[in-house]
């Protein structure tokens, strides 16, 4: 589900030729000679929402990373006298406790760590696969390209979540790493399409032609000339994949086919709170809000990165 959102997001970026002023009005505009990276960095730092989101994200990630030191309680150890406690500052149960007295603030911290960890593996694995497959298809074209594109078309005919559920159920997910790799091996299609498109257009460009004429090897052309020019979309996609992976992993874990207890994951925590939604409302609320916060921040950062890398969006 969310993989397609990522894909759609990138198509939005392509569709957004928001030339606010008719190009004719600006033809004479002199472009300052900043490199693409300097320009992108400058534009990203000016993007207030993206920068704020980035700071919040870093804080959340750091808190999750150092959960062992920050969490007031162990994630599995119950605080028996304080069972079913609503959120309170006394006793440091900021997110309350469940029926057997486990502290939900601590559980959320550890759950965040698991979920973020999974999401980063997913993003890394899928980015590597996506770049390789998309690059090969785009650079060599022909039959390989055709086969790849038909395959991704075919994958689109079956709900992504269904494929994931089948794989997780039968290959036995459970541990975070297994879940991460199952997701990672399925998340690459969107990026592969983007990379393929970029490679297809770049390989026709003059500087690539020139490198070919000069006798550069394929690998040199790919790694020196083409890949650096596709880094923008790749980075944006990898960022958005982290958000998508967090959401999909949470859904899988919630349904019982992803990360499974005793590993704490945000989806598992929400599933645990499902039965007492109206009585112990905090159980499902805080892990859910944490997912929303992380996904929202990543999406804003991704949006900022996209604007930053998009040469078309120079005009306010």
């Amino acid at each position: 589900m969310t993989d397609q959102q990522v894909r759609k997001d990138d198509e939005i970026a392509e569709a957004q030729t928001q030339a606010v002023i008719d190009s004719a009005h600006l033809e004479g505009l002199e472009i300052k000679s900043l490199t693409q990276w300097q320009l992108a960095r400058r534009k990203f730092f000016q993007h207030k929402l993206a920068m704020t989101s980035l700071v919040i994200l870093l804080l959340v990630f750091l808190a999750a990373l150092f959960a062992d030191f920050i969490a007031p309680y162990d994630f599995a150890e119950p605080d028996v006298p304080n069972r079913s406690s609503p959120p309170t500052f006394e006793g440091q149960h900021y997110f309350g406790t469940d029926k057997i007295g486990r502290d939900y603030f601590s559980r959320t911290l550890f759950g965040t760590r698991t979920s973020v960890y999974v999401a980063f593996i997913v993003a890394s694995v899928s980015t590597v696969i996506g770049v390789i497959i998309g690059g090969v298809a785009g650079y060599y074209g022909g039959a390989i390209d055709n086969l790849l594109m038909r395959m991704t078309d075919l994958f689109l005919t079956i709900p992504f979540l269904a494929i994931l559920l089948v794989l997780s159920a039968f290959l036995g997910a459970g541990s975070p790493v297994r879940v991460a790799f199952i997701l990672g091996f399925l998340f690459w299609t969107g990026l592969a399409r983007i990379v393929r498109g970029e490679f297809l257009s770049l390989r026709e460009k003059e500087f690539v032609e020139a490198a070919k004429v000069l006798g550069a090897s394929d690998s040199r052309i790919i790694f020196r000339h083409i890949l650096p020019n596709t880094l923008g979309p790749i980075i944006v996609n990898a960022t958005l994949t982290v958000a998508a992976a967090i959401l999909v992993e949470a859904a899988l874990s919630f349904l019982g086919f992803g990360v499974q207890p005793p590993f704490p994951a945000l989806g598992v925590l929400i599933a645990d709170g499902q039965d007492s939604l109206t009585t112990l409302w905090w159980l499902a609320t805080f892990p859910g809000l944490t997912i929303v916060l992380i996904a929202l921040c990543i999406n804003f950062v991704g949006d900022g990165l996209r604007d930053a890398f998009d040469p078309k969006q120079r005009v306010k």
């Binding site: 589900m1 969310t2 959102q5 997001d9 958000a243 959401l247 949470a250 859904a251 919630f254 349904l255 989806g267 929400i270 499902q274 939604l277 499902a284 609320t285 859910g288 997912i291 929303v292 996904a295 929202l296 999406n299 804003f300 949006d303």
Partner: peptide, 16 residues
Amino acid sequence: FFGFSVPIFWFALILQ
């Protein structure tokens, strides 16, 4: 943006 970021199952639970 919230729509992209809210897990659908959690949204359903909140409605419930």
